[in-house]
Every structure is written in structure tokens, then in C-alpha cells.
Design a protein around this nucleic acid. Structure first.
Lengths: 192, 192
DNA sequence: CATTAAGTGTACCGATCAGTTACTTTAGTC
DNA sequence: GACTAAAGTAACTGATCGGTACACTTAATG
């Protein structure tokens, strides 16, 4: 019994911070939007920053799990999975609640390189890169590190263009680019 | 005589907002950092938001002028200029004061799609896209719109990875990708 | 020298910020 | 039903928020 209020807070605070931004969301708004009392929040967390860090941990877990599983479901060869990243992105972009990447926004609001929020956001990108590097190696691509860095650049760029751009379908633009890059690389050396 | 305090404020406020963020920069900090009195600020601008909009207008002008001229200086063929975008980016990333794209950060802090700050930031990206679309057409590329969207995605992605990523040189990763994309496109149809 | 416009300094406004305090209510366990 | 731990209520702190009021200074112009 007694469902954990801490987890409930983190789950609900995620939506509020995602939709409103970090500085723009005050503790009183958090109380109003989550229905959890301020006393309770400060019994579980020392500061607002600690809440944000917990929110980002949850977001990292949620987002990576979702993306990894979606990519697995959409394709069954390593090469196909690398391209499926962008199909998954397209699905994400079309959600009505889509508001861009929470970690990009976190680094935008907490800019100091050694700030815990900045560090943790950068870690999210590192974990993503590591995961897809493994798939790129499994695909037998000649320069897996290089192509993975390019695929990540395409991913981040597509997110930005989805938020700011006027282009219809940045995910598919990125996918076309990814396909060309993978095939170019494959063409340079012999394919197994 | 009487050098315009308004312009001086916008010029100095740009650095403060760029380094500190928008919400995190209060009017009192702006007074302290610019040396311009609050009375004077509010004689030239109605609200803080108006100051931010003026700052973004200046940034748009400065950045696009700088990038366009740098690209022209680095290459003299249209195709070379498209690749020179990323050489210019590399120079930007290596500046000690580099803190990412001010417009990406502005949209991160002001998320509502119809917010003036959001609108103006998106406009910056549109102007950039239009400019490079012209160069892509001059290069005689078969699908200039498509390749330009991809080049913009690479540009934005490289900026994000420069801020958050652990990669050594995202600008050159993006350049290599751009080169492959341009050559692939050229290869698909006959080159003039 | 008087006028005028631009800019300064400083104290202040009500609202909100993150965070705290003291007290009450709720709910599960013995 | 008594005990206990968790959660809620609501008022409050000092600091800071964006923005204003008012008296004062500066400097270019007639």
C-alpha cells in the first residue's frame, strides 16, 4: 500500500517541467499542477534542483527505453535499426505533447559545463551514442565510430528542426541522409 | 555625438543573456553587467521581453552576416561554400565564449509556438535556410530543397553535439556527412 | 547663460521566488 | 482504539522578480 509519493511527484513534475521549462516553473506551480503538498516535496527532496535531477533521471530512463524498444520493433537487422531511429523520431515528433528534447532544454537553461544538470544531460547523449555505436558495429560498417557520430548529429538536428524549423518532416530528411551515409560507407569497402 | 544608449544596452545585454540565459538574467543583473541604469532601459523599452527581442534581432543580424561572409571567404564555388558552412562552424565552436545557438536556447525558454520570441527565433532559421537554398541551387544540385534541409539538420545537430556531446569535432563530422550527401546527390543524376 | 533631452541613483511597488515552520489530518499497523 | 509515520494546510521568511516614481546630473544647443 501507500504508493510512493516521491515517484508520483517525479512523474508529474516531468510533464510540468517539460511543458513549461525549468526556471519558469515555480514550486507553487508544481504544487498546483501535481496536487502534492510543498511540505511533502521538501520531505523527499532538499532543493528544487534535486527534483529536476530526479526528473531528468526518469526522463533518461523512459526515453532511452522507449527509443531502443521502438527501434527493435521497427527493424530486425542492425542496419535497418539504424534507419529505424528516424522512424521512431517521426512518431515522437507527431505526438501532440512533443516539445523537443528535454536534455537540450536543460543544458540551455543550466549552461555551466560542470553544473550537475548539464553533466547529467550530456550523459544522456553519451548513453544514446554508446548504444547505437554497438548497433553500428553489429552492422559491420567500416567506420562505426564515425558513422555513429554522424547519425547522432542527424538525430539532434532533426529534433531542433522539428521544434524550430519550417520543414514538413525533418525526421524523414534525416533518415534519407542517414541512408545515403550508410550506403556510401558500405560502398567504400566490401560488404560482407 | 551622444552615442545611442539603446544600442549600447542591446549590445551588452546580448553577452549577458547569451552567457546566463534569459529567465536567469534579472533586470538588476542587467544593470550591474551593462552599467546602464534601469530608468534608462525602461525609457527605451517597455518590457524585458522587448529587450530580449531587440537582442535577438541584433544576434540574427550579427550571426548571419558573420556566417555568410565567412563562407564566402572560405570558398568560391557554390558547392565549396556549402561545405565551408562547417568550417565556419568549427571556428565558432572553438571560440572560448561559445555557448551554443542563442535561438535554440530562446525557443527552449519560451516554448509556446506563438510566443514572439519563439516566432522570431524560428525566423532566424528560415532566413538561414533560404540563403543556403540559393547557394544549393547555384551549385546545380538536382534536389536543392532536399539537400538544403539535410545540410541545416547537420548544422543544428553539430551545434547541439558541440554543446552537449563528447565528440571531439562535431563540425568536421557534419562536414564529412555533408560532403557524402552532396556527392551522392550529384552521382544520382548527371553533373553539368 | 538658459533650455532641453538623456541618463543616473535610489528608494520603492506588489508579486513571486525557493524554502521553512507549526499544526492538523489521514491511513496503515499493532 | 492507540500508536505512528506520511501527507496536508496555510501562514510565513528573506530575497529577488519585473517595473515605477522622483529628484538629480550631465552635456549638447540656442
Amino acid at each position: 500500500m501507500r504508493p510512493n509519493k516521491r515517484d508520483e511527484l517525479v512523474r508529474k513534475a516531468l510533464d510540468v517541467f517539460y511543458a513549461n521549462g525549468f526556471h519558469a516553473t515555480g514550486m507553487d506551480m508544481l504544487v498546483a499542477e501535481t496536487g502534492i503538498s510543498k511540505t511533502s516535496m521538501y520531505k523527499h527532496f532538499r532543493t528544487k534542483e534535486d527534483i529536476i535531477l530526479a526528473v531528468l533521471r526518469l526522463r533518461d530512463e523512459n526515453f532511452r527505453n522507449w527509443l531502443y524498444r521502438r527501434v527493435e520493433a521497427l527493424a530486425d537487422t542492425p542496419k535497418g535499426q539504424l534507419l529505424a531511429i528516424y522512424d521512431a523520431l517521426k512518431e515522437w515528433f507527431s505526438l501532440p505533447e512533443f516539445r523537443g528534447c528535454m536534455f537540450i532544454k536543460a543544458t540551455a537553461e543550466f549552461q555551466e559545463l560542470d553544473h550537475p544538470i548539464h553533466v547529467q544531460s550530456a550523459e544522456h547523449k553519451r548513453l544514446l551514442t554508446d548504444h547505437f555505436l554497438g548497433i553500428a558495429k553489429a552492422a559491420g560498417l567500416p567506420k562505426p565510430e564515425s558513422i555513429t557520430r554522424q547519425l547522432m548529429i542527424l538525430k539532434e538536428g532533426a529534433i531542433i528542426m522539428a521544434v524550430m524549423g519550417h520543414s514538413e518532416n525533418p525526421a524523414m530528411d534525416a533518415k534519407a541522409a542517414a541512408q545515403a551515409l550508410i550506403e556510401t560507407q558500405n560502398h567504400l569497402e566490401s560488404t560482407p
